[in-house]
Design a protein around this nucleic acid. Structure first.
Lengths: 162, 162
DNA sequence: TTATAACCAAGTATTTTAGTCAAGAATAGA
DNA sequence: TCTATTCTTGACTAAAATACTTGGTTATAA
């Protein structure tokens, strides 16, 4: 699981799509304009998103992109992993040249952590993010207002997993 | 919050340090050897880790690095953010050129998500990872055996936050 | 038929990553 | 004191990923 500005672009664009669901399909030029991302770069990202079935494109005038399935069923993890090449993680493939004591062990630990991050990102959907927005749009409360709850639950994870 | 192989190197090296706590300080050459990372590259990473107080270095023969504080008090988030440059995230700094409808909104949503990831990574300590190892070292159970529990808790987050 | 917009492929500039090289400073042990 | 060891620092380079450009082609609504 890699996490760079590339993934941010993809998630941002998908959120833009989810927020403009009523006027779908949405043209890439609009997204590029709104989010300040190069259109051709977006095209490349959307090519990968399309191959994963995360978006559907319709050509011609009035065409554009819409979500491939309900925002409820698209996770942030889906989007991020769609635009990133898979990474191999360990340099020793299986468990070949591990003569030392803790070499491959640390790799396993990293892999475990990586899996946890992946699981976490797969548990957050686009719908949840946009819902949170509409909840706060009336009130002036910051988006981060729910964070304390999150931290509570997170510490629950902490004690129950380890 | 960025997550690349650079962060993996740093976390891996810190785990190596935590696992070899009994023979500390540990020389960089050993870590480089065990983990298959260039020593000079590790030197650069450890320079940043040292500036954050995550490691202490002692020179001379028999010298090396040891954890700057208890493994209980060092989170994966600490390590990863130490070796990465902070990223600005939005292209419109404050909220200047946001004339469209949902432009900065998506940025806020991303920032919120980013915060959640950060919080998650800050809730996992080196100690927890190494503890998990020693628990499983006797039995042949894979490290991922606890994942289902994690997923359960994660879905608990899902329903309670959103 | 024409304008629109998805699709596609190749190439380029920039940035980041990963690594090398070379030197210096502290220190344990001979 | 001398020496080997190891951290510490800086500059420089190669490779990879990222972000973007250019120039097309296809499909389709009007």
């Amino acid at each position: 699981m890699r996490l760079t500005t590339r993934g941010r672009y993809a998630v941002t664009a998908m959120l833009d799509l989810a927020l403009n669901i009523e006027k779908s399909p949405v043209a890439l030029s609009e997204i590029a304009d709104r989010q300040g991302i190069s259109q051709s770069y977006l095209e490349q990202l959307f090519s990968k998103l399309r191959k994963r079935g995360l978006v559907d494109g319709t050509r011609g005038p009035g065409g554009g992109y819409k979500l491939g399935r309900s925002a409820k069923l698209i996770s942030v993890g889906d989007v991020i992993s769609a635009v990133n090449e898979p990474v191999d993680a360990t340099q020793c493939g299986g468990q070949k040249n591990c003569r030392g004591e803790h070499p491959c062990l640390t790799h396993d630990l990293w892999q475990e952590l990586s899996l946890q991050i992946q699981t976490f990102l797969s548990s957050v959907t686009l719908q949840q993010l946009t819902d949170k927005e509409s909840k706060n749009s009336g009130a002036k409360a910051p988006l981060t207002s729910l964070t304390p709850i999150h931290m509570q639950v997170n510490s629950a994870i902490k004690t129950s997993i380890f």
